[in-house]
């Protein structure tokens, strides 16, 4: 809890950059440069080339050194740069197994690299065997290979299978190319028709599609089953605070406080508490309120963004969860 607010981190990644997992280091190297660009003392990026996240280390960052109550460990099924993806499913599952009362597991599959049938089978396995409650997708890969969320042949069978398996929230990496993916393949536009055709499904778009920020906000404003995660956006704050104020302000003005989610992007940036503190005390500068009409960040909005919105999506009863957590020590 942070100042009485339930903290539910929409996204952490247990990464694996060991030489056995890296196929092409271009994405790992670009990411590390990006992460270090947006670092400052107290909010440093991890030097993670050649390493992987340890479960115990992750639990300490999250539940001993920060006010985090719950997290979702998200698989990164990006198979053109890493054999098992930047954040392999099994490693996310290990974190969940180490602390099931606080960690939810997010599956990760890909129809291009696994084939549609392989993707559906693996999705089902990760749900049935590993208890996935959401699924993450990376649609753009190296050398222009990509797929769209509104493709009736490739994507719709995945959304249908998700719903059959009880998953009604799917998530997408949008914007922020990690390596040589094409920027246009990372635009959010394909989510529009999918959101219209699957109104019972919630679509979370990560990173506000940076640099497709305006398009991403516009889409979320018009489709009430589209949600926005501050993952990577909040992490810009130590270097570019006004960029964060502008993006958050625009989202609050056009989408509203009910569909914005806090995501820390640990463990690339492991100082989770610093980001909780930043969001927990962030104020919309009066100059932006005046010039653009961006609303102030109320305590109600802050509480929703920090945890209540994602808890609602994940059907977590916050009061019951807090009672449960008060009797359990993190990580057993």
């Amino acid at each position: 809890m942070h100042n009485g607010m339930f903290v539910f981190d929409n996204v952490v990644h247990m990464y694996d950059n060991t030489v056995e997992n890296v196929i092409d280091p271009v994405a790992m190297n670009f990411q590390e440069k990006f992460h270090h660009t947006y670092s400052r003392p107290g909010m440093e990026a991890e030097n993670y080339v050649g390493t992987h996240t340890e479960v115990q280390e992750a639990l300490v960052y999250l539940f001993e050194k920060s006010d985090t109550d719950m997290v979702m460990a998200q698989t990164v099924p990006l198979f053109s740069y890493w054999k098992q993806g930047f954040a392999p499913a099994w490693l996310q599952y290990k974190l969940k197994e180490a602390c099931p009362e606080r960690v939810l597991f997010c599956a990760g599959v890909d129809p291009l690299f696994q084939g549609l049938e392989g993707c559906l089978d693996e999705l089902e396995r990760q749900v049935v065997e590993w208890g996935a409650v959401s699924a993450k997708f990376y649609q753009a890969h190296a050398r222009g290979r990509s797929w769209r969320a509104d493709d009736p042949q490739v994507a719709y069978p995945i959304w249908e299978r998700c719903l059959e398996l009880g998953i009604d929230t799917v998530q997408f990496h949008k914007g922020i190319p990690l390596g040589h993916e094409f920027l246009e393949d990372l635009a959010p536009n394909d989510v529009q028709q999918a959101a219209a055709d699957f109104p019972q499904m919630n679509f979370i778009l990560h990173h506000f599609g940076l640099p497709h920020v305006d398009a991403t906000i516009n889409i979320a404003a018009r489709y009430e089953n589209v949600h926005l995660s501050l993952s990577a956006i909040l992490n810009l704050w130590p270097v570019s605070p006004w960029t964060v104020y502008e993006i958050l302000g625009k989202a609050l003005l056009n989408v509203g406080e009910d569909r914005i989610l806090y995501g820390s992007e640990a463990f690339a940036w492991p100082a989770v508490q610093a980001y909780i503190g930043a969001l927990g005390s962030m104020q919309m500068p009066e100059e932006l309120q005046d010039r653009y009409g961006y609303p102030e960040i109320t305590e109600t909005a802050r509480a929703k963004i920090l945890g209540l919105n994602f808890a609602k999506l994940m059907k977590v009863d916050v009061e019951a969860k807090l009672r449960e957590l008060s009797t359990v020590k993190a990580g057993g």
Partner: peptide, 8 residues
């Protein structure tokens, strides 16, 4: 569901 600033 959305708000504007008091200025606006």
């Amino acid at each position: 569901t959305t708000r504007v600033s008091e200025f606006a």
